[in-house]
Design a protein around this nucleic acid. Structure first.
Lengths: 203, 203
DNA sequence: CGAAAAAGTCTACGACTGTAGACATGGGAG
DNA sequence: CTCCCATGTCTACAGTCGTAGACTTTTTCG
Protein backbone atom coordinates (compact mmCIF):
# COMPACT_ATOMS: atom_id res chain seq x y z
CA UNK A 1 0.00 0.00 0.00
CA UNK A 2 3.04 2.27 0.06
CA UNK A 3 2.50 4.15 -3.17
CA UNK A 4 5.87 5.79 -3.68
CA UNK A 5 4.59 9.37 -4.08
CA UNK A 6 5.23 10.60 -0.59
CA UNK A 7 3.89 14.08 -0.07
CA UNK A 8 4.13 16.09 -3.27
CA UNK A 9 6.90 18.52 -2.31
CA UNK A 10 6.25 20.66 -5.37
CA UNK A 11 5.22 23.60 -3.26
CA UNK A 12 8.48 25.25 -2.38
CA UNK A 13 9.89 23.81 0.81
CA UNK A 14 12.66 21.33 0.31
CA UNK A 15 11.52 19.39 3.36
CA UNK A 16 9.05 19.70 6.16
CA UNK A 17 5.41 20.70 6.06
CA UNK A 18 3.77 22.62 3.27
CA UNK A 19 2.08 25.95 3.76
CA UNK A 20 -1.31 25.57 5.36
CA UNK A 21 -4.10 25.98 2.85
CA UNK A 22 -7.40 24.23 3.23
CA UNK A 23 -8.29 24.19 -0.46
CA UNK A 24 -4.91 22.86 -1.55
CA UNK A 25 -4.85 20.19 1.13
CA UNK A 26 -8.36 19.11 0.35
CA UNK A 27 -7.47 18.74 -3.29
CA UNK A 28 -4.33 16.77 -2.44
CA UNK A 29 -6.41 14.35 -0.40
CA UNK A 30 -8.92 14.01 -3.21
CA UNK A 31 -6.20 13.34 -5.80
CA UNK A 32 -4.58 10.74 -3.59
CA UNK A 33 -7.97 9.15 -3.00
CA UNK A 34 -8.74 8.82 -6.71
CA UNK A 35 -5.38 7.18 -7.35
CA UNK A 36 -5.58 4.85 -4.38
CA UNK A 37 -9.18 3.78 -4.92
CA UNK A 38 -8.45 3.15 -8.58
CA UNK A 39 -5.43 1.02 -7.77
CA UNK A 40 -6.77 -1.00 -4.88
CA UNK A 41 -10.53 -0.54 -4.70
CA UNK A 42 -12.68 0.82 -1.91
CA UNK A 43 -12.00 -1.96 0.56
CA UNK A 44 -8.38 -2.27 -0.46
CA UNK A 45 -7.19 1.09 0.84
CA UNK A 46 -7.32 2.53 4.30
CA UNK A 47 -7.71 6.18 5.09
CA UNK A 48 -4.21 6.11 6.55
CA UNK A 49 -2.76 5.14 3.16
CA UNK A 50 -4.58 7.95 1.40
CA UNK A 51 -3.60 10.44 4.06
CA UNK A 52 0.06 9.45 3.89
CA UNK A 53 0.14 9.89 0.14
CA UNK A 54 -1.48 13.29 0.51
CA UNK A 55 1.07 14.25 3.14
CA UNK A 56 -1.42 14.64 5.96
CA UNK A 57 -2.91 12.69 8.82
CA UNK A 58 -5.78 10.27 8.57
CA UNK A 59 -8.01 12.34 10.79
CA UNK A 60 -7.91 15.26 8.42
CA UNK A 61 -9.85 13.19 5.94
CA UNK A 62 -12.71 12.93 8.34
CA UNK A 63 -12.55 16.62 9.06
CA UNK A 64 -12.79 17.53 5.38
CA UNK A 65 -14.96 14.77 3.99
CA UNK A 66 -16.87 13.43 6.98
CA UNK A 67 -16.09 9.78 6.37
CA UNK A 68 -14.27 7.40 4.08
CA UNK A 69 -17.49 6.72 2.22
CA UNK A 70 -18.12 10.39 1.49
CA UNK A 71 -14.54 10.77 0.32
CA UNK A 72 -15.11 7.85 -2.01
CA UNK A 73 -18.23 9.46 -3.39
CA UNK A 74 -16.31 12.60 -4.26
CA UNK A 75 -13.45 10.60 -5.73
CA UNK A 76 -15.86 8.68 -7.95
CA UNK A 77 -17.33 11.93 -9.13
CA UNK A 78 -13.88 13.20 -10.03
CA UNK A 79 -12.95 10.00 -11.81
CA UNK A 80 -16.05 9.91 -13.96
CA UNK A 81 -16.66 13.57 -14.54
CA UNK A 82 -13.91 15.07 -16.70
CA UNK A 83 -12.99 12.25 -19.02
CA UNK A 84 -15.47 11.05 -21.51
CA UNK A 85 -16.09 7.38 -21.67
CA UNK A 86 -16.60 7.63 -25.39
CA UNK A 87 -14.41 9.20 -28.04
CA UNK A 88 -15.37 10.71 -31.35
CA UNK A 89 -18.86 11.59 -32.48
CA UNK A 90 -21.36 10.32 -34.97
CA UNK A 91 -20.04 7.80 -37.48
CA UNK A 92 -16.52 7.93 -36.08
CA UNK A 93 -17.61 7.01 -32.56
CA UNK A 94 -17.11 3.22 -32.76
CA UNK A 95 -13.66 3.44 -34.26
CA UNK A 96 -12.38 6.21 -32.01
CA UNK A 97 -13.77 4.67 -28.84
CA UNK A 98 -12.38 1.23 -29.66
CA UNK A 99 -8.93 2.68 -30.35
CA UNK A 100 -9.02 4.71 -27.15
CA UNK A 101 -10.05 1.66 -25.14
CA UNK A 102 -7.22 -0.48 -26.45
CA UNK A 103 -4.71 2.29 -25.86
CA UNK A 104 -5.85 3.03 -22.34
CA UNK A 105 -5.78 -0.65 -21.37
CA UNK A 106 -2.30 -1.19 -22.75
CA UNK A 107 0.14 -2.75 -20.27
CA UNK A 108 2.28 0.39 -20.15
CA UNK A 109 -0.52 2.92 -19.85
CA UNK A 110 -0.10 4.95 -16.70
CA UNK A 111 -3.45 6.69 -16.70
CA UNK A 112 -5.68 4.37 -14.76
CA UNK A 113 -9.15 5.40 -15.75
CA UNK A 114 -12.61 5.20 -14.20
CA UNK A 115 -13.30 1.63 -15.27
CA UNK A 116 -10.52 0.37 -13.07
CA UNK A 117 -12.06 2.19 -10.15
CA UNK A 118 -15.41 0.70 -11.08
CA UNK A 119 -14.16 -2.86 -11.30
CA UNK A 120 -12.05 -2.83 -8.18
CA UNK A 121 -14.73 -1.32 -5.96
CA UNK A 122 -17.66 -3.31 -7.31
CA UNK A 123 -17.57 -5.81 -4.47
CA UNK A 124 -18.73 -3.35 -1.84
CA UNK A 125 -22.49 -2.72 -2.08
CA UNK A 126 -22.32 0.86 -0.79
CA UNK A 127 -19.52 1.63 -3.20
CA UNK A 128 -21.49 0.03 -6.02
CA UNK A 129 -24.49 2.22 -5.28
CA UNK A 130 -22.35 5.34 -5.28
CA UNK A 131 -20.82 4.39 -8.61
CA UNK A 132 -24.15 3.57 -10.17
CA UNK A 133 -25.38 7.05 -9.38
CA UNK A 134 -22.21 8.62 -10.73
CA UNK A 135 -22.49 6.66 -13.96
CA UNK A 136 -26.08 7.66 -14.41
CA UNK A 137 -25.17 11.27 -13.74
CA UNK A 138 -22.16 11.55 -16.04
CA UNK A 139 -21.28 8.85 -18.53
CA UNK A 140 -24.75 7.43 -18.94
CA UNK A 141 -26.32 10.76 -19.78
CA UNK A 142 -23.55 11.67 -22.21
CA UNK A 143 -23.66 8.32 -23.90
CA UNK A 144 -27.41 8.19 -24.10
CA UNK A 145 -27.78 11.49 -25.86
CA UNK A 146 -25.13 10.46 -28.35
CA UNK A 147 -26.64 7.06 -28.94
CA UNK A 148 -30.27 8.02 -28.42
CA UNK A 149 -30.88 4.71 -26.67
CA UNK A 150 -30.23 3.79 -23.06
CA UNK A 151 -29.71 0.09 -23.66
CA UNK A 152 -27.10 0.71 -26.33
CA UNK A 153 -25.33 3.16 -24.09
CA UNK A 154 -25.09 0.79 -21.17
CA UNK A 155 -24.14 -2.13 -23.38
CA UNK A 156 -21.29 -0.01 -24.69
CA UNK A 157 -20.21 0.64 -21.12
CA UNK A 158 -20.53 -3.07 -20.38
CA UNK A 159 -18.27 -4.03 -23.28
CA UNK A 160 -15.68 -1.51 -22.21
CA UNK A 161 -15.77 -2.65 -18.60
CA UNK A 162 -15.46 -6.27 -19.67
CA UNK A 163 -12.46 -5.61 -21.89
CA UNK A 164 -10.86 -3.59 -19.13
CA UNK A 165 -11.43 -6.44 -16.73
CA UNK A 166 -9.88 -9.06 -18.96
CA UNK A 167 -6.98 -6.95 -20.13
CA UNK A 168 -5.94 -4.89 -17.13
CA UNK A 169 -7.32 -6.64 -14.09
CA UNK A 170 -7.07 -10.30 -14.97
CA UNK A 171 -4.47 -10.09 -17.70
CA UNK A 172 -5.81 -13.02 -19.66
CA UNK A 173 -3.40 -14.09 -22.33
CA UNK A 174 -5.25 -13.56 -25.59
CA UNK A 175 -6.50 -10.06 -24.88
CA UNK A 176 -3.51 -8.80 -22.92
CA UNK A 177 -0.84 -10.03 -25.30
CA UNK A 178 -2.75 -9.87 -28.56
CA UNK A 179 -2.05 -7.50 -31.37
CA UNK A 180 -3.53 -4.07 -30.51
CA UNK A 181 -4.56 -3.42 -34.10
CA UNK A 182 -6.53 -6.61 -34.43
CA UNK A 183 -8.12 -6.18 -31.05
CA UNK A 184 -9.20 -2.62 -31.78
CA UNK A 185 -10.80 -3.82 -35.01
CA UNK A 186 -12.74 -6.54 -33.26
CA UNK A 187 -14.03 -4.19 -30.60
CA UNK A 188 -14.93 -1.64 -33.22
CA UNK A 189 -17.14 -4.25 -34.86
CA UNK A 190 -18.95 -4.72 -31.57
CA UNK A 191 -19.54 -1.02 -31.13
CA UNK A 192 -20.68 -0.80 -34.73
CA UNK A 193 -23.48 -3.23 -33.95
CA UNK A 194 -24.50 -1.15 -30.96
CA UNK A 195 -24.74 2.21 -32.69
CA UNK A 196 -26.85 0.96 -35.59
CA UNK A 197 -30.44 1.09 -34.29
CA UNK A 198 -31.20 -2.55 -35.05
CA UNK A 199 -30.01 -3.61 -38.43
CA UNK A 200 -29.15 -7.16 -39.47
CA UNK A 201 -30.11 -8.93 -36.27
CA UNK A 202 -28.92 -12.41 -37.19
CA UNK A 203 -25.93 -13.18 -39.34
CA UNK B 1 -22.44 -11.14 6.74
CA UNK B 2 -25.08 -13.27 8.42
CA UNK B 3 -26.18 -15.35 5.49
CA UNK B 4 -29.35 -16.92 6.83
CA UNK B 5 -28.44 -20.54 6.03
CA UNK B 6 -27.10 -21.54 9.41
CA UNK B 7 -25.67 -25.01 9.35
CA UNK B 8 -27.42 -27.13 6.75
CA UNK B 9 -29.42 -29.43 9.00
CA UNK B 10 -30.25 -31.75 6.12
CA UNK B 11 -28.26 -34.55 7.69
CA UNK B 12 -30.62 -36.00 10.22
CA UNK B 13 -30.18 -34.36 13.59
CA UNK B 14 -32.86 -31.88 14.45
CA UNK B 15 -30.32 -29.86 16.44
CA UNK B 16 -26.78 -30.14 17.67
CA UNK B 17 -23.67 -31.30 15.87
CA UNK B 18 -23.65 -33.37 12.71
CA UNK B 19 -22.00 -36.74 12.44
CA UNK B 20 -18.24 -36.44 12.11
CA UNK B 21 -17.14 -37.06 8.57
CA UNK B 22 -14.14 -35.32 7.09
CA UNK B 23 -15.30 -35.52 3.48
CA UNK B 24 -18.76 -34.19 4.21
CA UNK B 25 -17.46 -31.39 6.39
CA UNK B 26 -14.86 -30.41 3.82
CA UNK B 27 -17.52 -30.24 1.16
CA UNK B 28 -19.79 -28.18 3.40
CA UNK B 29 -16.99 -25.68 3.91
CA UNK B 30 -16.31 -25.56 0.19
CA UNK B 31 -19.97 -25.00 -0.64
CA UNK B 32 -20.26 -22.24 1.91
CA UNK B 33 -17.08 -20.69 0.56
CA UNK B 34 -18.36 -20.60 -3.01
CA UNK B 35 -21.58 -18.95 -1.91
CA UNK B 36 -19.90 -16.44 0.37
CA UNK B 37 -17.12 -15.48 -2.03
CA UNK B 38 -19.67 -15.05 -4.80
CA UNK B 39 -21.86 -12.84 -2.68
CA UNK B 40 -19.23 -10.66 -1.04
CA UNK B 41 -15.92 -11.20 -2.81
CA UNK B 42 -12.60 -12.41 -1.48
CA UNK B 43 -11.94 -9.48 0.81
CA UNK B 44 -15.57 -9.14 1.81
CA UNK B 45 -15.87 -12.39 3.75
CA UNK B 46 -13.94 -13.61 6.73
CA UNK B 47 -13.14 -17.22 7.41
CA UNK B 48 -15.38 -16.99 10.46
CA UNK B 49 -18.36 -16.20 8.27
CA UNK B 50 -17.70 -19.14 5.99
CA UNK B 51 -17.11 -21.44 8.92
CA UNK B 52 -20.34 -20.38 10.61
CA UNK B 53 -22.35 -21.03 7.47
CA UNK B 54 -20.74 -24.44 7.17
CA UNK B 55 -21.55 -25.20 10.79
CA UNK B 56 -17.93 -25.47 11.93
CA UNK B 57 -15.21 -23.39 13.47
CA UNK B 58 -12.90 -21.04 11.61
CA UNK B 59 -9.81 -23.04 12.46
CA UNK B 60 -11.11 -26.10 10.68
CA UNK B 61 -10.77 -24.21 7.44
CA UNK B 62 -7.07 -23.88 7.98
CA UNK B 63 -6.80 -27.53 8.89
CA UNK B 64 -8.48 -28.65 5.69
CA UNK B 65 -7.39 -26.01 3.22
CA UNK B 66 -4.25 -24.51 4.69
CA UNK B 67 -5.28 -20.90 4.36
CA UNK B 68 -8.05 -18.62 3.20
CA UNK B 69 -6.27 -18.14 -0.09
CA UNK B 70 -6.05 -21.86 -0.82
CA UNK B 71 -9.71 -22.24 0.08
CA UNK B 72 -10.48 -19.48 -2.39
CA UNK B 73 -8.51 -21.23 -5.09
CA UNK B 74 -10.56 -24.38 -4.64
CA UNK B 75 -13.78 -22.42 -4.52
CA UNK B 76 -12.91 -20.69 -7.78
CA UNK B 77 -12.22 -24.05 -9.35
CA UNK B 78 -15.61 -25.30 -8.25
CA UNK B 79 -17.38 -22.19 -9.48
CA UNK B 80 -15.85 -22.30 -12.92
CA UNK B 81 -15.58 -26.01 -13.52
CA UNK B 82 -19.02 -27.58 -13.81
CA UNK B 83 -21.05 -24.91 -15.51
CA UNK B 84 -20.25 -23.93 -18.99
CA UNK B 85 -19.87 -20.27 -19.70
CA UNK B 86 -21.35 -20.77 -23.12
CA UNK B 87 -24.58 -22.48 -24.14
CA UNK B 88 -25.46 -24.19 -27.38
CA UNK B 89 -23.05 -25.20 -30.10
CA UNK B 90 -22.24 -24.10 -33.61
CA UNK B 91 -24.71 -21.72 -35.18
CA UNK B 92 -27.00 -21.73 -32.16
CA UNK B 93 -24.27 -20.59 -29.77
CA UNK B 94 -24.85 -16.82 -29.90
CA UNK B 95 -28.57 -17.07 -29.40
CA UNK B 96 -28.43 -19.68 -26.64
CA UNK B 97 -25.63 -17.95 -24.77
CA UNK B 98 -27.30 -14.56 -24.93
CA UNK B 99 -30.58 -16.00 -23.64
CA UNK B 100 -28.79 -17.81 -20.84
CA UNK B 101 -26.92 -14.67 -19.85
CA UNK B 102 -30.07 -12.57 -19.62
CA UNK B 103 -31.85 -15.27 -17.66
CA UNK B 104 -29.03 -15.78 -15.19
CA UNK B 105 -28.66 -12.05 -14.57
CA UNK B 106 -32.36 -11.55 -13.96
CA UNK B 107 -33.18 -9.82 -10.68
CA UNK B 108 -34.90 -12.90 -9.27
CA UNK B 109 -32.30 -15.46 -10.32
CA UNK B 110 -30.98 -17.26 -7.28
CA UNK B 111 -28.10 -19.06 -8.92
CA UNK B 112 -25.22 -16.64 -8.56
CA UNK B 113 -22.74 -17.81 -11.14
CA UNK B 114 -18.99 -17.57 -11.65
CA UNK B 115 -19.03 -14.09 -13.13
CA UNK B 116 -20.28 -12.64 -9.90
CA UNK B 117 -17.40 -14.29 -8.09
CA UNK B 118 -15.07 -12.93 -10.71
CA UNK B 119 -16.31 -9.37 -10.48
CA UNK B 120 -16.49 -9.16 -6.73
CA UNK B 121 -13.03 -10.57 -6.14
CA UNK B 122 -11.27 -8.71 -8.94
CA UNK B 123 -9.89 -6.04 -6.62
CA UNK B 124 -7.47 -8.37 -4.86
CA UNK B 125 -4.38 -9.10 -6.99
CA UNK B 126 -3.80 -12.58 -5.58
CA UNK B 127 -7.43 -13.45 -6.11
CA UNK B 128 -7.25 -12.07 -9.62
CA UNK B 129 -4.27 -14.27 -10.43
CA UNK B 130 -6.06 -17.33 -9.11
CA UNK B 131 -9.11 -16.56 -11.20
CA UNK B 132 -7.10 -15.91 -14.33
CA UNK B 133 -5.59 -19.36 -14.08
CA UNK B 134 -8.96 -20.95 -13.46
CA UNK B 135 -10.45 -19.19 -16.46
CA UNK B 136 -7.59 -20.28 -18.67
CA UNK B 137 -7.96 -23.83 -17.40
CA UNK B 138 -11.73 -24.18 -17.79
CA UNK B 139 -13.81 -21.64 -19.63
CA UNK B 140 -11.09 -20.30 -21.86
CA UNK B 141 -10.12 -23.70 -23.18
CA UNK B 142 -13.70 -24.73 -23.78
CA UNK B 143 -14.55 -21.48 -25.50
CA UNK B 144 -11.46 -21.45 -27.64
CA UNK B 145 -12.00 -24.86 -29.12
CA UNK B 146 -15.58 -23.93 -29.93
CA UNK B 147 -14.66 -20.59 -31.43
CA UNK B 148 -11.25 -21.59 -32.80
CA UNK B 149 -9.90 -18.19 -31.82
CA UNK B 150 -8.60 -17.01 -28.47
CA UNK B 151 -9.42 -13.35 -28.92
CA UNK B 152 -13.03 -14.08 -29.80
CA UNK B 153 -13.32 -16.37 -26.82
CA UNK B 154 -12.05 -13.81 -24.36
CA UNK B 155 -14.06 -11.02 -25.91
CA UNK B 156 -17.13 -13.16 -25.41
CA UNK B 157 -16.20 -13.57 -21.78
CA UNK B 158 -15.61 -9.84 -21.55
CA UNK B 159 -19.06 -9.02 -22.89
CA UNK B 160 -20.67 -11.43 -20.48
CA UNK B 161 -18.73 -10.06 -17.53
CA UNK B 162 -19.62 -6.52 -18.50
CA UNK B 163 -23.31 -7.25 -18.79
CA UNK B 164 -23.20 -9.06 -15.48
CA UNK B 165 -21.52 -6.09 -13.89
CA UNK B 166 -24.06 -3.58 -15.15
CA UNK B 167 -27.10 -5.70 -14.50
CA UNK B 168 -26.40 -7.57 -11.29
CA UNK B 169 -23.64 -5.67 -9.52
CA UNK B 170 -24.37 -2.06 -10.34
CA UNK B 171 -28.01 -2.39 -11.31
CA UNK B 172 -27.94 0.37 -13.86
CA UNK B 173 -31.41 1.30 -14.94
CA UNK B 174 -31.53 0.56 -18.66
CA UNK B 175 -30.02 -2.92 -18.47
CA UNK B 176 -31.53 -3.98 -15.17
CA UNK B 177 -35.07 -2.87 -15.89
CA UNK B 178 -35.12 -3.26 -19.66
CA UNK B 179 -37.17 -5.78 -21.53
CA UNK B 180 -35.39 -9.18 -21.37
CA UNK B 181 -36.37 -10.06 -24.92
CA UNK B 182 -34.92 -6.94 -26.44
CA UNK B 183 -31.77 -7.18 -24.36
CA UNK B 184 -31.18 -10.78 -25.35
CA UNK B 185 -31.51 -9.84 -28.98
CA UNK B 186 -28.99 -7.03 -28.68
CA UNK B 187 -26.46 -9.24 -26.93
CA UNK B 188 -27.03 -11.97 -29.49
CA UNK B 189 -26.03 -9.50 -32.20
CA UNK B 190 -22.79 -8.86 -30.36
CA UNK B 191 -22.00 -12.54 -30.07
CA UNK B 192 -22.88 -12.99 -33.71
CA UNK B 193 -20.13 -10.58 -34.66
CA UNK B 194 -17.67 -12.49 -32.52
CA UNK B 195 -18.30 -15.95 -33.92
CA UNK B 196 -18.03 -14.94 -37.55
CA UNK B 197 -14.27 -15.09 -38.29
CA UNK B 198 -14.03 -11.50 -39.55
CA UNK B 199 -16.72 -10.60 -41.96
CA UNK B 200 -18.01 -7.09 -42.59
CA UNK B 201 -15.60 -5.14 -40.44
CA UNK B 202 -17.25 -1.75 -40.79
CA UNK B 203 -20.96 -1.29 -41.18
C1' DC C 1 1.94 42.78 18.85
C1' DG C 2 -1.64 39.80 20.60
C1' DA C 3 -5.64 37.15 20.34
C1' DA C 4 -9.17 34.51 17.83
C1' DA C 5 -9.79 31.17 14.48
C1' DA C 6 -8.35 27.96 11.28
C1' DA C 7 -5.47 23.90 10.14
C1' DG C 8 -3.43 19.87 11.45
C1' DT C 9 -1.67 16.14 14.73
C1' DC C 10 -1.77 12.68 18.62
C1' DT C 11 -3.67 9.17 21.35
C1' DA C 12 -6.95 5.94 21.89
C1' DC C 13 -10.87 2.82 21.44
C1' DG C 14 -13.61 -0.94 20.03
C1' DA C 15 -14.24 -4.05 16.42
C1' DC C 16 -12.52 -7.02 13.15
C1' DT C 17 -8.95 -9.84 10.50
C1' DG C 18 -6.15 -14.49 9.49
C1' DT C 19 -4.04 -17.98 11.82
C1' DA C 20 -0.93 -20.55 15.29
C1' DG C 21 -0.97 -23.78 19.30
C1' DA C 22 -3.10 -26.24 22.98
C1' DC C 23 -7.03 -28.60 24.23
C1' DA C 24 -11.44 -31.49 24.03
C1' DT C 25 -14.30 -35.12 21.93
C1' DG C 26 -16.36 -38.57 19.12
C1' DG C 27 -16.09 -43.04 16.55
C1' DG C 28 -14.12 -47.05 14.65
C1' DA C 29 -10.62 -50.89 15.45
C1' DG C 30 -8.55 -54.18 18.60
C1' DC D 1 -15.10 -52.48 26.49
C1' DT D 2 -11.07 -49.78 25.72
C1' DC D 3 -7.70 -47.35 23.42
C1' DC D 4 -6.29 -44.01 20.08
C1' DC D 5 -6.31 -41.18 16.26
C1' DA D 6 -8.99 -38.33 13.42
C1' DT D 7 -12.09 -34.61 13.95
C1' DG D 8 -13.34 -30.42 15.82
C1' DT D 9 -13.15 -26.40 19.33
C1' DC D 10 -11.11 -22.73 22.42
C1' DT D 11 -8.04 -19.15 23.51
C1' DA D 12 -5.00 -16.00 22.07
C1' DC D 13 -2.01 -12.95 19.34
C1' DA D 14 -0.42 -9.45 16.46
C1' DG D 15 -2.32 -6.61 13.05
C1' DT D 16 -5.39 -3.29 10.70
C1' DC D 17 -9.55 -0.82 10.26
C1' DG D 18 -12.54 3.71 10.73
C1' DT D 19 -13.12 7.44 13.58
C1' DA D 20 -14.05 10.24 18.02
C1' DG D 21 -12.06 13.77 21.21
C1' DA D 22 -8.42 16.50 23.03
C1' DC D 23 -4.50 18.68 21.82
C1' DT D 24 -0.85 21.75 19.34
C1' DT D 25 0.63 24.71 15.71
C1' DT D 26 0.07 28.03 12.20
C1' DT D 27 -2.24 31.77 9.92
C1' DT D 28 -4.89 35.85 9.81
C1' DC D 29 -6.93 40.04 11.38
C1' DG D 30 -7.82 43.98 14.48
Amino acid sequence: MTDSTPADPTEQEGRGARRRDAAVTRQAILDAAVAAFTRHGYDGVGVRDIARNAGVTAMLINRYFGSKERLFAEAVDVAFAPRTVISGTGADLPRATARALVTRTAPDAEELGPFLLLLRSAANPSAAAIMREAIARHAGRHLTEELSDGVSAELMLAVQAGVWLMRSVLGTTALAEGEPEELAGRIESLFQVLVTPDGPGSR
